[in-house]
Amino acid sequence: MPPSPAEAPPQPADLSVVPSPAPAAGPAGPTLQGLPAGLEALPAGGARLRFQPGVEVLPQGLDSGLAELGRRIAAGPPGRIAVTAQASGPASDVSAARRVSLARALAVKQALAAGGLPPTRIDIRPMGRTAEALDAVDVQPPEPKAAR
């Protein structure tokens, strides 16, 4: 039998757009129920806060809603939460989108901490521009502890 033909080399990665985070495998974490106005429920149990393009500060009136969410998360099961921020910023300037997403993540972290959630429990993930090109910040509750 003749040897199989060589495969073509893989295409180089497109580094102009940061891929969006993949959802975690396995059972979904606890859901955030009864979300304050301005927050959308996510299928995996988290919450999404939308921003206007280029805006880094929290939408007006949402700081108190995020503080309430921080109080509820702090009173719930222990664990770290993830704040994942995205920006639709210009595809030609990756660092600008990263800066906007970082500012958004920090603003959400500060509002959650104002409600009593210890800042050391909040992991921020400024994704910059993702393939979805969203202007949003997602808050994921702590993962449930595995049974031992």
Rank of each mutant, 00 (worst) to 15 (best):
R71F: 02
P77A: 15
R104P: 10
L106T: 14
R104G: 05
L102Q: 12
A75Y: 06
S88Q: 12
E68W: 08
G79I: 01
P78M: 08
A74P: 04
P90V: 11
R104L: 00
R80C: 00
A96G: 10
A107Y: 02
A82V: 12
G76H: 04
P90T: 13
R99Q: 10
V83K: 09
S92M: 10
D93K: 12
R98L: 13
L102C: 01
P90D: 15
A96S: 14
R99I: 00
E68V: 12
V108S: 07
A74L: 10
R104M: 00
V94N: 09
P90Y: 07
A87Q: 01
G76M: 07
R98C: 00
V108N: 09
R72Q: 12
S101K: 04
G89Q: 10
A97I: 05
T84G: 04
P90S: 15
A74N: 11
S101M: 01
R104E: 01
G89T: 08
A85T: 02
S88T: 10
S101Q: 03
V94S: 15
P90G: 15
I73T: 03
A75D: 14
L102P: 08
A82D: 15
P78Q: 10
I73Y: 06
S95H: 11
P78C: 03
A82L: 15
T84Q: 11
P78S: 14
V83N: 03
R72C: 01
L69N: 04
I73L: 15
S92Y: 08
S101C: 05
I73R: 08
G76Y: 03
V83Y: 08
A103R: 11
A107W: 05
E68L: 15
